[in-house]
């Protein structure tokens, strides 16, 4: 049995650079595939309610009459199911996480009549 195997490793660690980084000053590197947060593009949405029906956590609410799309960010588990299903490609996964929040806020997107671009999002 080897003696001091652990001690040798501990001494090595004393002279090595730290393996951790000073987050948030040194932010984490995300990969292109990372499922970070859901991004909604209002301009192409037809309010078909498919994303609402297929969301496993019921985080999405769509009101077709009011032309409203609502996301409860804290319920979203970033599974990406809605992104796979959306026929218009309005839903995408961005490869970075959301900022820390204090209250579980809902995100509203409403299309004002007459139809305009996605910049009329009301949050």
């Amino acid at each position: 049995m080897k003696k001091f195997a652990m001690e040798r490793m501990s001494l090595n660690n004393l002279f090595r650079k730290p393996s951790t980084r000073l987050y948030p000053d040194a932010p984490k590197k995300y990969f292109p595939n990372t499922r970070g947060r859901l991004v909604f593009n209002l301009s192409d949405c037809t309010f078909c309610t498919l994303c609402q029906k297929k969301c496993p956590t019921h985080a999405i609410t769509v009101r077709r009459e009011q032309q409203e799309w609502e996301l409860e960010r804290m319920r979203c588990i970033a599974c990406g199911n809605c992104c796979d299903l959306c026929r218009k490609g309005c839903l995408t996964m961005k490869n970075e996480l959301t900022k820390a929040v204090i209250l579980p806020e809902r995100e509203y997107y409403r299309r004002e009549k007459p139809q305009s671009s996605g910049e009329d999002a009301v949050k």
Binding site: F31, N33, T34, R35, A78, G80
Partner: peptide, 8 residues
Amino acid sequence: IIEETSGG
């Protein structure tokens, strides 16, 4: 590696 390949 898992994050790079699967996304989570």
